[in-house]
Structures are given as structure tokens and as C-alpha cells.
Design a protein around this nucleic acid. Structure first.
Lengths: 248, 248
DNA sequence: GGCACAGTCACGCAGCGTCATCGTTT
DNA sequence: TAAACGATGACGCTGCGTGACTGTGC
């Protein structure tokens, strides 16, 4: 079953303009019939649902786009994650209700309140729990942005320089792949690798594990490493995982 | 206890820029020490809390301003109303969770879903319940906007014309105030009065009752009617209430 | 041939974030 | 005298709403 733009707008409860916009920014790009009319298909339906969930959780459209295009994106996991974030939102609302009740008592002089309690439920406490959780789950988007930030003034030379260093590291690494992924020498190199990420963004162990997964799951990444040596992607993945497991 | 802008920003969990903005648009205007620095006092604290509550409920700042400046505004009632709207929001979040669970089952082929069920919790159903509730509670703001709309092209003459008609109606009404507020003749005039509101906005019985309250509670309104005849504000209030009680 | 629906510009707006620049206070 | 805090512009951004005008399909 496929839908026209009006039909989809109706069943999804969004405006046609919104769908136009999502098309414009490349967030939800439908097929075109005869190169003219937009045609939304089954697969677009779940895609739009995801967009709406992320939007409900106040993610910027730009981030949503990156998340949904990320090869690591997993629909079912995303849905489960949404649930958790929604639960946190509910908690926030509950706290707001508590603040309301307290405030009512305060204006009736039944209790006294510290000034900051008036805003307890709005500010940092909970909102950070939410933000932290969201970042933990979708932090790679944050990393992307940091990366953009840190390299925005880079010259060609800067890039060339970085590439040189990477190549050097890589050759060195490949030269040691006769060792076990868990061997100290490899782990030392992996540690260097981990730290070199800081050139672009602040890594975390969680994210590093995600990166490891990418090395074997995303064909583009995999191809890049296999070029150096067959089996290298898997080798790095294992070494990185071991590294993560032994952190902290 | 009074606060500087930085202090308030910190305890309320908003940015300094936000407070600047609220000052600029006249939403929260602090005192100025020596005509220079902003000084936020006790009364500003509750005011800001209200702003944050309304903002949480996604009211535009413009509406918030009008609501908080409305003479009918009652802090305690507002707090209670916030609770109700927050409850509806929570319900919406619960429904979202249900949709998530269903979707998970669907992609695991455990159940089938109609396409529109994918969006059931986002769209109209609940969101309208929320919007309706909000409008019922704070609809006078909506009326104000309609009124702006409908009169934006009015000329001086249009206003003069309307005033003339009003005066005529008023004299007629006063000439009959020896009757009971509930008498048919008064009720007929009240009906005319009710309908004349349509010149500016679509009235509802709920709002009309609110208007009746204003006639006796808001000094500005009261003065306007008392000028015609002492006791008129109360008389109109009673007639209007009776009218509302017998509608539908 | 009318009406509903499709499309593409293009402008506008809220609610701040984010400098830049400057004075004041400690 | 520097650092922390205050003020006032002014420009920028996101996520669409809201026309205006045109083409297409029944």
C-alpha cells in the first residue's frame, strides 16, 4: 500500500508542509511517480514514525537524520530506547506535579519553600538525567558535532598531517598483527588509537565499542581496513572490545 | 530576598539571555537598581514559575503574557489547571509507550497493525483532548486573538458605528432593569448581547460566564457599567449567569 | 470546465543562542 | 589591575506556517 502526501499527512497527523520540509532537508525522501508526485511507501511509514518519536523527545531534525542514517541504527533497539526516555519524561512531569502541590501549600501559608524549590523540577536535576541518558544512547551524533567543531578551521595541511600520522600508526599496527588482539603490545597501540580520537571528539568507552561494531558491520568502514590486510577489521574489532572490557 | 539576573538564572535553570528576552517582551520585567541593573524580587519568583509552567505546556509567550496580566488570573486555580494539563500529557506519553510496544511486536511479526495505528498516539485523538482542555481553560486568550483578527481592518467609522449600536442597546437595557434579571424581556436582550459578541469572536457559554464574572470582579469593567446605573454590573452579571444556566 | 489535489518558490515568525562591545563592581 | 558580572545591540538558527501562483487529473 502506498500513499499520496495528503493521505500520509492525515494518518500521521502532521501537515503537508511538514512532509515537504522533511523532503527538502532529506529527512524523509519519498519516491516520485513520473518524476512528479511524491509517493510514500510502506518503508516510509516506519521511518516517519521514528522521526516523530525522536521529535517528541526533542531531538533536532539534523540529529534525527544522522541517527536514522547511521548504519548502526537498529529499529527495535531504538524503540526500546524511546521507551526509556519517555519514562524519564514522565518522571519529570510527576515532579512538576509535586512542585505544583508544594507551591499551592506555600501560597496558602501551610508550608515554607526554599526559593530554588520553586523550580526544582524544571532545572538541572532531572533535565540532566534526561539529557545524559539521551546522550549515552545517541551520543555518536554529539561526537559528530564536536568533530565538526574541532575541524572547522582545519587547512588541507592539517588534514594531510593527520593522515600521515594515521598511516604511520596503521603500518605499525599491521606489523604487529601476528600478536594476539589481547597482547600488551596490541593493547598499547589500541590505547593510542583511542586517544587519537580526541583530535576530533571526546570519546567514551561506550562509543568506542560502537565504533568497534562499525568496523565489522558497516561495509564502508570494513572495506577501508580490509584494504590494509584481510581480516584486519575483525582483528581490530576484537582488540577494541578487549580494550573496552578492561577499562576502569 | 532579591536576586541578580545571574542568580535567578541559576536557581530557575534558565539562561540569562532568556531573562533578558522576557524583559524585552514585557513578560517578566524586574526593577532596576539605580536605573541600571535588573533586580528580581520575591514576587518575580512566582511569576517566573508560572511562565515556566505555561511554557512547559507549550503556550506561546504572547499568550502567557496576556493570561498572567488578565485581572481574572488566579494563581491557585492556575496551578490546579496546570496539574490537569500535565495529567493529559502523561496520558499521551503512556499511549506512546503502548504504540512502541505494538510496533515492536509488529516488526517481529507477532501482530499486524493498521498503518494509522503507527501514529495513533501522536495525532489528533489525544492531542486534541489536550488542546481542547487548554482552550477551555485559557480560551479568553484565543478570543482576544480572534478579536484582533476581525477588527484589524476596522476604520474609525466602523468603531463609531459599533459604539452607537452598543449605546442604543445599553439604553434600552437600562430602561428595562425594573424587570427581574430572569424575566423573558431581559433574557431576550441578553441573548442579543451574547450574539453581538460575534462581531469580535466566537463566544462560548463558558466564556460568557467568565465575562459575567469580570463585570463584577474587574474594577475597570465594573466602573464602565456602573456609570450607566448603580448596580448595573451586578444586575448584568446575574442576568448573564441565568442565561448561561439555561443554555442547551 | 470546475474542483480537489499536486507542485514549487518565497517570505515570515517565535524564542531564544551566540558573539561583540562596553561599562561596573570587587 | 584583572576577573567577574552587568548591559545593550545585532545577527543567526530551527522548524515549520502561510500565502501566492501554477500544473494535473478526474
Amino acid at each position: 500500500m502506498s500513499y499520496t502526501i495528503n493521505q500520509l499527512a492525515k494518518i500521521a497527523g502532521v501537515s503537508v508542509r511538514t512532509l515537504h520540509h522533511y523532503d527538502d532537508v532529506g529527512l524523509l525522501v519519498p519516491k516520485r511517480e513520473d518524476n512528479k508526485y511524491r509517493v510514500y511507501e510502506e518503508s516510509d511509514l516506519l521511518h516517519l514514525q521514528q522521526i516523530l518519536f525522536f521529535r517528541e523527545l526533542e531531538f533536532p531534525l539534523d540529529d534525527i537524520k544522522r541517527i536514522l542514517n547511521d548504519p548502526r541504527f537498529n529499529l527495535e533497539r531504538a524503540l526500546v530506547d524511546h521507551k526509556k526516555l519517555i519514562e524519564i519524561k514522565k518522571k519529570r512531569l510527576n515532579d512538576l506535579v509535586k512542585t505544583i502541590d508544594k507551591t499551592i501549600k506555600k501560597i496558602n501559608k501551610q508550608i515554607t519553600m526554599k526559593d530554588e524549590e520553586l523550580y526544582g523540577s524544571f532545572s538541572k536535576n532531572e533535565m540532566n538525567e534526561y539529557a545524559e541518558e539521551a546522550k549515552k544512547r545517541w551520543g555518536h551524533t554529539e561526537a559528530y558535532k564536536q568533530s565538526q567543531e574541532r575541524t572547522k578551521n582545519w587547512t588541507q595541511e592539517d588534514y594531510a598531517h593527520f593522515k600521515e600520522e594515521s598511516d604511520r600508526w596503521m603500518k605499525n599496527f599491521v606489523a604487529h598483527t601476528h600478536n594476539d588482539p589481547q597482547s600488551p603490545i596490541i593493547q598499547t597501540l589500541i590505547n593510542e588509537h583511542y586517544n587519537s580520537l580526541r583530535t576530533f571528539y571526546e570519546p567514551s568507552i561506550e562509543m568506542y565499542r560502537g565504533l568497534a561494531d562499525m568496523y565489522i558491520n558497516d561495509p564502508r568502514f570494513k572495506a577501508y581496513y580490509e584494504k590494509y590486510k584481510v581480516g584486519l577489521a575483525q582483528f581490530m574489532h576484537d582488540a577494541m572490545y578487549y580494550y573496552c572490557d578492561n577499562q576502569k
